[in-house]
């Protein structure tokens, strides 16, 4: 697999910007890993948190969001680098708002489940 064509366009950004972009990618990857670990941990450590089907669906949704986030974090990294190479404005991303909503909704659902647990 070769480097994508856009990596030869424009000018190579300052190494500090490249590395900062890489660290942001890694931070999103860790967020994805936290979602995965959380999904499996809730499934195993809190089997009584909800009826089995509800629990499985919730944990699978969390794991699926983790998988999607891993893909989105790579795409985000590529788009940021393309913008830096061609001296464009950094692209706006809904990722932060999206993940804020995801985490808030997940926290709310699990808080309700914990409070209403028999």
């Amino acid at each position: 697999m070769h480097e994508p064509a856009w990596r030869r366009t424009g000018t190579t950004p300052d190494y500090r910007f490249s590395l900062a972009n890489e660290r942001t990618f890694l931070a999103w990857v860790r967020t994805a890993l936290a979602l995965l670990a959380g999904a499996v941990a809730i499934d195993q450590l809190a089997p009584e948190i909800a009826p089995t089907v509800v629990r499985i669906i919730l944990c699978m949704v969390l794991a699926l969001i983790g998988a999607a986030l891993a893909v989105v974090s790579y795409r985000r990294w590529a788009h940021q680098e393309q913008a830096m190479r061609n001296n464009h404005e950094l692209p706006h991303s809904w990722l932060m708002l999206g993940m804020t909503v995801v985490v808030a909704v997940a926290a709310l659902i699990f808080a309700v489940l914990i409070l209403t647990r028999p």
């Binding site: 697999m1 490249s18 999904a39 499996v40 499934d43 998988a67 891993a70 790579y74």
Partner: peptide, 27 residues
């Protein structure tokens, strides 16, 4: 010194594969 796209793509793919393993384990 910048990361190659291949390295980051591989890392990203590894996380997706781990997610598949996690989903199977949950199922």
């Amino acid at each position: 010194i910048a990361a190659s796209a291949l390295t980051l793509r591989t890392a990203s793919a590894a996380i997706v594969a781990l997610a598949v393993a996690a989903i199977c384990a949950i199922a």
